[in-house]
Design a binder for these strands. Structure first.
Lengths: 184, 184
DNA sequence: TCCAACCGTTCGACTTGACGAACAAGTCGC
DNA sequence: GCGACTTGTTCGTCAAGTCGAACGGTTGGA
């Protein structure tokens, strides 16, 4: 949600997505049920489309609604095992290192976590709509909703709602995992 | 992108998000710079807002644009180390198991990959806007753009554009990693 | 060459969304 | 009880988005 004018972003997105499908402006307008004059104006940045118009175009282009406003941007980035911002519990038996932060508008964080055996870490519910994915790298752990955790072994994967109380309890020394925290 | 009417979704989303902030309808309308009558109509499902109006409301409510139309849906899911759809190279020295597929509209896949030492796997460029994240679990590997790969050790993280040629070459037996493929 | 079919743009007419005022209802302090 | 302040709603007016028709431009076949 940057200060960029949404109309220009939508205009370029419409052109880009239409180019991706290889369809003509007339064809897309026909499929979406909107006048081609309207689509022409939108792609040129003129006008302020209504939701129904945009929705029809999204369906015709087979894309997500938010996909029209979020732009892309890539680059190579390396964070070594002992680098990156890390958070620890007071007992030092749990550490989470943020390796892929939100730049700045995506909706997911990737952590590498190291947990020592013990009572485990119980996390309070996060914001609604958060989903957490865990792939166990080494060791053995009890992961998932606090009231119904699952035992994971190396290579195992689990996903669970992050807006419910959940836990991560290591059962062996040297337990590490990759955690993907995904906002809706 | 289901067949649900977007106007109703937006109406309920606006009510929900405004309730989250605890602000009054009048206050939100004032902050967004829209008439409170307009906001009232939108929250009641009447009317077909323009992009600028919605955008102003998103800024006032401090939420993402797509957050108004995409509803939430979580659940617990476990895929064991030997389960899940897997793809192999012809030589069997590379396997990727999809653990978190796109359900069906999110923009990322999570793979657990196992690679044997050898010449490595060179991937052709994917669609534009794809970003790949790798966290090495065990072993040692050369990962990244084909013309400038990076040596990773357990716990190391790398991100690189997926729309450029890239490689994954294991340097030790038993090399495993978690791969997050993210579409823009 | 001519005609037809398509492309995307521009124009006027109609429809509709956004605005502000006036409205009923609820809350606080005197 | 009575103002003065909230809350969210409904109404009429004006501006703006949407539509369909007509436009100039390009391609392809008879």
């Amino acid at each position: 949600m940057d200060g960029k004018a949404p109309l220009e972003v939508i205009a370029s997105s419409l052109r880009r997505e239409r180019a991706r499908t290889g369809l003509s402006l007339t064809e897309v307008a026909k499929r979406a049920g909107v006048a081609k004059s309207t689509l022409s104006q939108l792609e040129s940045g003129t006008g302020n489309p209504s939701v129904e118009t945009l929705w029809a175009l999204c369906v015709a282009l087979d894309i997500q609604f938010g996909q029209l406003v979020d732009p892309p941007k890539p680059r190579v980035q390396v964070i070594r095992a002992n680098e990156g911002p890390a958070v620890y519990t007071e007992h030092g038996d749990y550490s989470a290192t943020l390796v892929a932060s939100c730049p700045p508008n995506t909706r997911r964080d990737v952590y590498r976590i190291v947990v020592a055996p013990g009572p485990g870490r119980n996390s309070d519910p996060h914001m609604p709509g958060v989903v957490e994915h865990v792939v166990l790298s080494t060791g053995r752990a009890l992961v998932g909703p606090t009231d119904d955790p699952v035992e994971l072994r190396p290579g195992d994967y689990i996903a669970y709602p992050g807006d419910l109380p959940h836990t991560f309890q290591a059962l062996e020394p040297g337990t590490t995992a990759v955690l993907l925290s995904e906002y809706s």
